[in-house]
Lab assay of single mutants.
Amino acid sequence: MQIFVKTLTGKTITLEVEPSDTIENVKAKIQDKEGIPPDQQRLIFAGKQLEDGRTLSDYNIQKESTLHLVLR
Rank of each mutant, 00 (worst) to 15 (best):
V17S: 10
V5N: 00
L15E: 00
Q49H: 03
L56F: 03
G35V: 04
S20M: 09
G47Y: 04
T22L: 15
R42E: 09
D52A: 06
S65T: 06
I3N: 00
F45V: 06
V70Q: 15
E18C: 03
N25S: 04
L56H: 00
E24A: 12
E18V: 03
V5H: 00
S57D: 07
E16L: 07
S65L: 07
T55Q: 11
L8C: 02
V17F: 03
I61P: 01
S65K: 04
E34K: 03
I36E: 03
T7D: 13
Q40G: 14
Q49R: 04
L8D: 15
A28T: 15
K33F: 13
T14R: 09
I13M: 11
N60R: 08
Q62K: 07
D21V: 15
I23F: 02
K33A: 10
K29I: 06
V70T: 15
T12R: 04
E18T: 13
N25A: 12
I36T: 05
G53P: 07
T55L: 11
L15N: 00
L69C: 02
H68V: 05
G53M: 07
D52R: 04
I36L: 13
N25L: 09
I13C: 01
T66L: 12
Q40S: 06
Q2H: 09
Q2M: 08
I30D: 00
D39K: 11
D39C: 02
M1S: 09
R72S: 11
G47C: 03
F45E: 03
T12M: 12
F4P: 01
K63M: 07
L67Y: 01
P19S: 14
L67T: 05
R54F: 14
I44L: 05
R54E: 03
E51C: 02
L15Q: 01
I3L: 13
S57T: 14
I61H: 01
R42D: 15
T22G: 06
Q49P: 14
L71C: 02
L43I: 06
H68G: 12
F4T: 12
F4V: 09
E16C: 02
G35N: 05
L50V: 06
E24V: 09
D58P: 01
K29G: 08
E51K: 03
T12V: 11
A28W: 11
K63R: 07
F45Q: 15
G10S: 14
